[in-house]
């Protein structure tokens, strides 16, 4: 068998760098870690949305002003966009061929996720810091439910 080998490079040298992705363990773990974080966060978000059904803007603002809700929202935004861009990266890596095109699209996805996440976080920050609704003197306050 050995005398048939005509290529002088070692088997390892020929194989090195030819793997599918050249990386992946960190991506795989980050996807799972963000998924675990999203388990309680999504449950909390669905329950919160049900409690906010039919809410007006000031109800939502009052809800976000609660520190726990603001913190949970920021955590939800962080975990959601982190998880989403990791997942979409795999989708595009699977279906887009050609390293240049693939890299361009994956970078665009990551950039869009970052911008949307920052936008959402800024909205939460603005609502959190917004002044509490103060009724003018003499205005009847809404009856508490």
């Amino acid at each position: 068998m050995v005398e048939q080998v005509k290529i002088m490079r070692s088997q390892l040298g020929r194989a090195r760098g030819l793997g599918a992705a050249r990386a992946g363990t960190e991506h795989w773990i980050a996807e799972r870690v963000s998924a675990v974080a999203l388990v309680p966060l999504s449950v909390w978000f669905i329950v919160s949305l049900l409690s906010l059904l039919g809410a007006e803007q000031r109800d939502v603002a009052a809800w976000v002003r609660h520190p726990f809700n603001a913190a949970m929202l920021l955590a939800l935004i962080l975990a959601t966009f982190h998880h989403a861009q990791l997942g979409m990266q795999v989708v595009f890596e699977d279906y887009v061929h050609g390293p240049q095109r693939r890299t361009a699209i994956v970078l665009a996805v990551k950039g869009a996720a970052l911008l949307l996440g920052l936008l959402a976080a800024l909205a939460v920050a603005k609502l959190y810091l917004s002044p509490d609704f103060v009724a003018a003197p003499g205005t009847p306050t809404a009856p508490s439910p």
Binding site: E56, Q57, A84, M88, L116, A120, A123
Partner: peptide, 26 residues
Amino acid sequence: GIALTAGTLLLVWWLVAAAAGPAAFA
């Protein structure tokens, strides 16, 4: 997963509109 990624646009819109004020939120 792809649908939920698209759905994040709705979350962002909802939060940004709430931060913008009653008219946008409506």
